[in-house]
């Protein structure tokens, strides 16, 4: 469809010059014209110890189709960074690349690298299992395991071979409280996790993700299947976790991004378009594309 479009004025009968400009922007990206991403100095001149995750020239292919294009960005320590962008632009892919979940998919190829606290993630000698233990992840769709609520939460500890009931109990309660689920399930911890509602399952997955005290928390639309009250609880949780954890969160909800995050990155068609402190990105975006997306003109 996009092939039919060309960035030439006047071909189509479009009155609003703003729309025309946006279309041109889309077409520029679609044609793979190299565009320098607009990255705010606040996130370019970070010291090494302020950065938790450094993404360097990262590209990814699913088979023959390239999904991520030379993405470079630094995720600051102890802050909440939001990834926004239209559906299919590669936010989940980027997130899953951080803990190398994409390794599991046949035919995935990458180039570039990421550094977690200075350690390469994609170097050949990296122990992927150890790497993943340093991160927690909340998937886009809740994925509780077929076991009890309790076992779900302490799963990351179980696989480390921790058997001490005291530790497990404590972690379970702390994580569930953290995910604002404790009061709802404290009387039925031994029930199957699959009997929980969708929103409860989502929070259970959050509890599981924070159980092992990860360095980075990756959240892919953690509030997508939650009602406003539960969403508020999860947002409250993210607020609390800020500072303690570094959080990388994908969201489709602009207000949420604006409320929650310290920094926001706008992605489009596999590229990083703009990356800046949230206050700046939402108020005074550098690029036309970003502004259009934020104001809901496309995507």
């Amino acid at each position: 469809m996009l092939q039919k479009l060309e960035p030439v004025d006047g071909r189509r009968n479009m009155k609003d010059p703003k729309i025309q400009e946006s279309v041109n922007a889309i077409v520029r990206v679609a044609h793979g014209m190299e565009m320098e991403p607009a990255i705010h100095p606040a996130v370019t001149h970070l010291k090494d110890n302020e950065v938790v995750l450094r993404i360097k020239e990262f590209s990814l292919w699913y088979g023959k189709t390239q999904t991520l294009f030379r993405i470079s960005m630094d995720i600051p320590k102890g802050k909440v960074t939001a990834l926004i962008g239209p559906s299919g632009c590669g936010k989940s892919t980027l997130l899953r690349s951080v803990n190398r979940l994409n390794d599991l998919i046949d035919g995935v190829r990458i180039s570039g690298d990421m550094l977690l606290n200075g350690d390469s993630i994609y170097a050949p000698e990296v122990d992927v299992i150890e790497l993943r233990k340093r991160m927690g992840m909340v998937a886009q769709k809740p994925n509780p395991f077929p076991m009890s609520i309790y076992e779900n939460v302490v799963f990351p500890l179980r696989i480390d071979g921790i058997r001490d009931r005291r530790i497990l109990d404590e972690v379970c309660e702390r994580s569930l409280r953290g995910a604002a689920l404790w009061d709802e399930v404290k009387d039925r911890l031994q029930d199957s996790a699959l009997a929980l509602s969708g929103g409860q399952q989502q929070r259970l997955c959050i509890a599981r993700a924070i159980a092992a005290d990860p360095e980075v928390l990756l959240m892919d639309e953690p509030a997508s299947s939650l009602d406003p009250i539960a969403t508020a609880k999860v947002e409250e949780l993210i607020h609390q976790l800020r500072g303690e954890y570094t959080i990388l969160i994908v969201t489709h909800n602009m207000q949420q991004a604006a409320r929650l995050s310290d920094f926001t990155a706008f992605m489009y068609m596999g590229r990083l378009i703009e990356y800046a402190p949230t206050g700046i990105l939402f108020v005074k975006p550098q690029l036309k594309e970003t502004e259009d997306y934020i104001l809901g003109r496309f995507g």
Binding site: I129, K133, M135, K141, N143, F145, M147, P156, R158
Partner: peptide
């Protein structure tokens, strides 16, 4: 067995065998 379950286990740092033994087989 849904792939999302396997991925969930891997994301927690489970090895392949742990994933199979604790998630895939019970399910």
């Amino acid at each position: 067995v849904p792939n999302s379950m396997r991925e969930g286990a891997y994301a927690c740092g489970a090895s392949k065998w742990q994933t199979i033994q604790r998630i895939v087989i019970p399910r």
